[in-house]
Simulated assay, not measured.
Amino acid sequence: MTIPFSTSAHLIQSEAEALQAAEQFAQFIAQQALERDRDRILPHQEVEQFSQGGLWGITVPKEYGGAGVSTDVLTRVVQRIAQADGNFGHIPQNHYYALEVLRVGATHEQKAFFYDQVLQGKRFGNALAEIGKKDFVRRTQLLKAPDGWFVDGRKFYCTGSLFAHWIPTLTSSPDDGRLYLVFVPREAKGVTLTDDWDGFGQRVTGSGSVEFTRVPVQPQWVVPFTDSFERPTPIGPYAQIIHAALDLGIGQGAFEATLPFIRAHSRPWIAAGVGSAAQDPLLLQEVGNVHVRLRAAQALLARAARYVDAAQHAPDEDSVAQASIAVAQAKALATSASLLAGSKLFELGGTSATQAQHGLDRYWRNARVHTLHDPVRWKYHAIGNYALNGVRPPRHGAL
């Protein structure tokens, strides 16, 4: 399939404009979210509209022509779109991640080229994960042969790649044993994408598998990856805060769906002695509990964003560790809050909330699948070890 592309993408120039564009797009994307999830309809046209509207380019630094929005604004954009459609909110996550990898580790020439591609409306997917491996050793390789450079291997759970023009691919080099992020053109010879993601949640995120069969690549498409974790950089917390924003957005979407359903459909428990579910005192207690946890997660997310911005502006051992811990705190609470919101929707909505016509199960399914991205139990471990022993968390993409 040839990916649609136009060179007339709108250029968002301010944080206020980015937030306004996100709100407008969220209202649009919410209209058919249920049908897309239920019938597994991949949002090709919606993705094109999203990128042509300029939201793909909001984190491109100002010196390269973008809006260079703060981490707080980015998380608010992701959160709002995920609230409207948890599936769609996941699609640009790795695109923003790849832009940060470029900012930290690419040459000026690479930044100028790829940032310009994005501002024109082109999209990055991802090919990072591999299935059937207990550690993080990468079997997909960057091969440097006499007749050129090639990528060879297979990746799994490649969110967004079905919609992408470029697929940033994590590779290892047999020459030096180091990791590189290779930006592979979607239409390159030897690239095969398979729409084989069959998880019960995040069903229409374009998270298929990608196979690379001796795919020719140019040296200028190769960005060092190991280098960016041997020194303190904010890549890890930056990646994780986007995931936290996505989880929180899904939870907020579930809560937003809970309230009108209670008003219109739920019945008070017989012992409550009230005329409507909205007056049931124990139901009100649970609504308040979910609301408080979501608001607390939102506050931690905003706080973490400030730490990530500080680490971006002045990265060192302390600032990056502080950002990682702040993001871990937000991610831990966003995980539990989103799962709670999705579960309480049914408990408070009653049996009728489980009817397929409402499609309310998508909130819990999406939260449950996405929060498995990395184990939140290790967030608590990192937080506890830092608080008690002053041990900085390890530097990698999951912290």
Rank of each mutant, 00 (worst) to 15 (best):
H396D: 12
L259S: 08
S8W: 05
E230G: 12
R203Q: 09
L179A: 02
P61C: 10
G249C: 05
F183G: 00
G201W: 05
P168H: 01
R295S: 07
E48H: 14
P168D: 10
D72A: 15
P4M: 01
D195E: 02
L388D: 12
A302S: 14
S336T: 14
Y180D: 06
R395K: 13
H370E: 12
W269L: 10
S276I: 03
L74E: 00
D309L: 05
E48L: 15
G397W: 10
Q329N: 06
D176P: 15
G397Y: 08
A245L: 04
E286W: 08
Y307N: 09
G66Y: 07
G349R: 00
D147C: 02
G89D: 06
F150N: 02
A67P: 04
V290C: 01
Y115L: 09
C158M: 00
E17V: 09
G199T: 04
V223D: 01
H313D: 15
D361C: 11
G208D: 04
H108K: 15
R203C: 10
A328Y: 10
L372C: 11
F5K: 07
H90I: 09
F346M: 13
G342S: 06
S172V: 05
S209G: 12
W378N: 13
P234A: 05
S8I: 09
R76S: 15
K133D: 09
V217H: 04
A257F: 08
P237M: 03
R295I: 03
G66D: 08
P4T: 06
D195F: 02
H108M: 11
I81N: 13
V308F: 02
T335M: 05
G349L: 01
